[in-house]
Amino acid sequence: MERKILVPDMHCENCVRRIKEALSELKIEAKIDLDSKTVTVLGCENCFETAFNEIYDLGFTPNKM
């Protein structure tokens, strides 16, 4: 299953790296696109919620799409 999270305050490659590292530590598979400012979570509903909370904890303001 694929679900998207919009992260409007993801500005740069550095932000992408921080999200990527945090999600891969949790073994969550995700595609991060800086241009569209989206994180596509590949996994179950639980993975999606965990990813969403993790991005929030990183200091971003995520929105479910």
């Binding site: 305050d9 500005h11 740069c12 550095n14 904890d57 200091g59």
Partner: peptide
């Protein structure tokens, strides 16, 4: 912190 986005993240949390 590397860039303005990092300092903004610290500020938000």
């Amino acid at each position: 912190m590397h860039c303005a986005a990092c300092s903004a993240a610290v500020d938000r949390v």
